[in-house]
């Protein structure tokens, strides 16, 4: 709840988002499952922002089907040798450290033989290749791990328990996926921009009845999501198991994020399709955000995966 309020204020002030991987992913993993030594070594850097993390989960053959991870960690004298390829690694090119999901046991069921390691991005054998995305920008990378050595102390928790830790986090962090504050702020900015931008009929875009109608519908959906996220948080703060609505905030939140930039494209019209280098003013950034926004229904477990989880676990369809 405190984080919800903090994030609402950060979004309202247009503050840059805090590092997702360090603060939301690695921090909770280490303080929940890490050794005392790991807490002492890594948590201060996450808190101060001095150390930057990336997430080494996805692979070319393991996207939504994360349990299909193939990167292996082989036990050697004093540590482990990690070999394989990580895909879609966001900000690997800025990262000091990676939290790396690897296969440590091939003899057991796919989820059972996975382990989590901390990996130094400067270590010999780490190669980073940029992947340019639909918006023309570089934020994700392929990371090749060529027998990278990590010491024994780099293992988080126990061997072969990595899946349990990863799943714990997914349950713990679902409300974050809704991105409700960022959507609210972005939507308010779009309203302000649409009031200034002249539509095709020569009136302000926000005077067009069709656009007003669509703004109202996004307003209604956003209002609904804000309450749904609060319902999840209230259950959490009162120590109740998350109710069924927890499973849907990612689905609805991601659809809404897309609806906002889709609306922006219609507000700005022709101005939004002029190549970015020629653009400027209020449309700057909207087109790129709109393009990259396609990812939100794909990452963090594609919405189709989420729907299957809702249908089977929440509704009990079989």
């Amino acid at each position: 709840m405190q984080r919800f309020i903090f994030e609402a204020e950060c979004a309202a002030a247009d503050a840059p988002p805090t590092s997702v991987f360090g603060v939301y992913l690695v921090g909770p993993t280490i303080y929940s499952f890490g050794s005392e030594e790991q807490k002492r070594r890594y948590l201060p850097g996450i808190r101060s922002g001095a150390e930057f993390w990336c997430q080494g989960y996805s692979e070319p053959e393991a996207g939504s089907d994360l349990a299909a991870v193939r990167t292996t960690a082989r036990k050697v004298e004093g540590g482990w040798r990690i070999a394989g390829q990580k895909a879609w690694t966001t900000e690997a090119h800025f990262a000091d450290l990676m939290i790396c999901l690897t296969r440590t046991n091939t003899a057991v069921k796919s989820q059972a033989g996975l382990s989590l390691f901390v990996l130094d991005m400067q270590a010999p054998g780490v190669t980073i290749t940029p992947v340019i995305t639909i918006d023309g920008a570089h934020s994700v990378n392929s990371v090749f791990l060529d027998d990278v050595f990590v010491p024994d102390e780099a293992l988080i928790g126990e061997v072969d328990k990595g899946w349990t830790y990863a799943k714990f986090l997914l349950n713990h962090e679902r409300t974050n996926n809704a991105q409700v504050h960022r959507s609210r702020r972005e939507f308010e900015r779009l309203k302000a921009a649409a009031a200034l931008c002249i539509g095709e009929s020569g009136r302000p875009a926000l005077d067009e009845p069709g656009l007003r109608r669509r703004f109202a519908i996004v307003e209604q959906k956003l209002g609904g999501l804000e309450v749904t996220v609060l319902r999840v948080l209230i259950d959490q703060t009162q120590g109740r198991e998350p109710g069924p609505e927890a499973s849907i905030v990612k689905i609805i939140g991601s659809q809404l994020q897309q609806a906002i930039t889709e609306l922006a494209m219609d507000v700005f019209g022709a101005a939004a399709v002029v190549a970015p280098e020629a653009g400027g003013g209020e449309t700057a950034g909207w087109t790129e955000r709109h393009l990259f926004r396609r990812v939100v229904t794909i990452y963090a477990g594609a919405n189709e995966i989420q729907k299957t989880i809702v249908a089977r676990s929440t509704l009990g369809l079989r």
Binding site: K221, G224, L225, V227, T228, R231, P244, E245, I248, I251, I252, E304, Q306, K307, T308, V310, A311, T314, L315, L317
Partner: peptide
């Protein structure tokens, strides 16, 4: 998936 969509709609209405 249709049922998951129906459930999302229902929870939005509920909220």
């Amino acid at each position: 998936h249709l049922m998951a969509d129906a459930f999302c709609d229902l929870e939005t209405l509920r909220s």
